[in-house]
Design a protein around this nucleic acid. Structure first.
Lengths: 343, 343
DNA sequence: CGCTATCTTGTAAACGTTTTCAATACAAGC
DNA sequence: GCTTGTATTGAAAACGTTTACAAGATAGCG
């Protein structure tokens, strides 16, 4: 491997000068700069990133810790973060914990070891352990930002969507279409403790809308699931359709749940959307691909990722920057799966 | 930051001993080991990964370079690689080039800078530039493995699926169901050069099956698209259904293409699968979620990722390991979207 | 010309770890 | 007791870079 010394020797300057050229510092005479660059090209020198990171004690790597990686939502979010970071000169170490606290621990340690400058976390159930780890991180000077979950610690920046308002909007949409007996398949709800989680917020919005907007609305809730998968949606949907006759619309608190419900409805011989309106939540790619296409409360996923990345970058570049809590709005995308109730 | 020196001082040993304890080497007296460990705990020492990587000139990071990140196939693959690597003690720097050669270049440089031990690549169109970069990499001692594409350079390990056989199988399935006029929506085909690409292989298999298995099969090919998105599938499907009457089955060379075709069929008022059988390729999660559920030629995506990871690890641990070309089989998953032709 | 200010460059010291080499201690065998 | 071998430890050098400091060069100014 060709080092800075080799370049210095060939260009007949000191290693300090080479370093200055490599890092683009001022105070180098143009002819010297050219000579150094020529030597660099001639030798095919590349700065040893490991050495340079070691010396400066920081890498241009930021960690991104997500629960899952395979879900549409997560991968869209990861993508948004990654591209934004890339454009700003940072590289991303992406980690999916898959709900495994040990993995989360191991990854956080790796990140610490690598002296990442910052971390974006979409926390698991935000266990006490995670909280402690995050504190440790911040003590060691790592910037932290949360995405899709508001931290209890107010000094941490975060980007979330207003899930309460989203639930409210979705419910209003269904009520305005004339539906009065509405099923809700609720997923993504932390089983223990955290009432601040995304799923619960959506349910809260749903309840509030029903309370505000019509006296005669009847909501049939599913069991509050912690997962939000297609399978869960299908089973819950089936149970709901067969168990609660008279339901004319089902609101899945996740697109994948809603798609599962859609399948259950198909399987039970319902014609959609005539016999049942179905509403999803998230606005992932898949929702545009169902039959019928799924109306959904869309999250600005790309924007979330982008803002989270930029917020973290702000903190990394200027540690004194005061924390920022960003709340984004969800918006209804009306497609084919929700129609007015025919009387 | 507490360093090895602090620990050494507190435990009253030399830094060498601390290093030996930290790295679990033999030849340390148990009581000394305990004393060091106690000091480590007391001070909260963590090895400085940057320094250690610098000293040994290698990180436990491997690079994974994918075209996309948002597609179901890619994220499933990435997930498989990542978990396998994690379990083996490696961490993954995941990069999605999104077809942008400059990004690919930048990422490869980052990886080189970080002295990654190995790289898994799912190449873009494998431009001349990529080939050159890969050579550079290997010269600098980085292990390389390809996934989902056979490299032209035989000395590189790779894991691919037998796309020819997959195309053949799919066609046989449709022919056995009695279909004789079959549409093929072909995507994922490199526009320039590379006839070894995944899409072309599938088409080759399709042609061969038609040639082998029945004299009276008529295939209607779409334009060979380079992308394989839902939208492309929908447009091609619409054109095919309206433009070529008499087609009773359509084979999309990608699940997303097939799902697009399915939408076009729905939109044109066809009843599925009665009026049209549709077959996909890939076996991504989404294929199980369509209506009707999509029959598809499934790739063992998880296995691909796993084997690619393990192959790379083999090479990293033992540089002399001879290259390995793994070919996996695709298998038909018959679901609801393909049925026997009613006469 | 002398003085100061600015620009340019080199020397050398870090950064925290791993690792080679040598030294010491201890046990075993004679 | 002496030799030999092995287990344990420490001193010190390296890894390639950045950077503080100093020193030399140059220019500006009176």
């Amino acid at each position: 491997m060709v080092t800075i010394k080799d370049v210095a020797k060939l260009a007949d300057v000191s290693i300090a000068t080479v370093s200055r050229v490599v890092n683009g510092y001022a105070h180098v005479r143009p002819e010297v700069r050219d000579a150094v660059n020529k030597a660099i090209d001639a030798l095919g020198y590349r700065r040893n990133g490991l050495a340079s990171s070691f010396r400066t004690q920081q890498s241009n790597i930021v960690g991104v810790l997500l629960r899952q990686q395979r879900t549409p939502f997560s991968s869209a979010l990861a993508y948004a973060i990654e591209t934004t970071m890339f454009d700003q000169g940072y590289r991303v170490l992406l980690c999916s914990t898959n709900g495994d606290a040990d993995r989360e621990q191991a990854y956080l340690e790796t990140m610490l070891d690598m002296r990442v400058q910052g971390i974006i976390i979409r926390p698991s159930a935000t266990t006490a352990r995670t909280v402690k780890q995050v504190s440790t991180l911040r003590e060691s000077g790592v910037s932290v930002a949360f995405v899709d979950m508001k931290p209890k610690i107010a000094s941490i920046s975060s980007v979330v969507c207003d899930n309460f308002s989203g639930g409210y909007q979705g419910m209003r949409h269904l009520i305005e279409l004339g539906h009065r007996k509405i099923g809700v398949v609720a997923g993504g709800i932390a089983q223990r403790g955290g009432s601040q989680d995304v799923g619960s917020e959506r349910v809260r919005g749903i309840r509030q809308a029903a309370h505000d907007l019509a006296d005669d609305v009847e909501i049939v809730f599913s069991h509050p699931f912690d997962t939000a998968s297609f399978e869960v949606g299908r089973e819950a949907g089936q149970a709901m359709i067969t168990g609660s006759p008279g339901i004319t619309a089902i609101f899945g608190t996740t697109d994948m749940l809603a798609i599962g419900v859609m399948h259950a409805a198909h399987a039970l011989g319902l014609e959609l959307p005539r016999d049942l309106s179905i509403l999803g939540y998230d606005g992932v790619l898949e929702s545009a691909v169902t039959f019928p296409t799924l109306s959904t409360i869309a999250q600005p996923i790309h924007e979330m990722g982008q803002i989270a990345a930029m917020t973290l970058i702000d903190h990394m570049r200027e540690a004194s920057k005061s924390p920022r809590q960003v709340v984004l709005e969800n918006t209804l995308i009306q497609r084919a799966s929700t129609i007015p109730l025919e009387i």
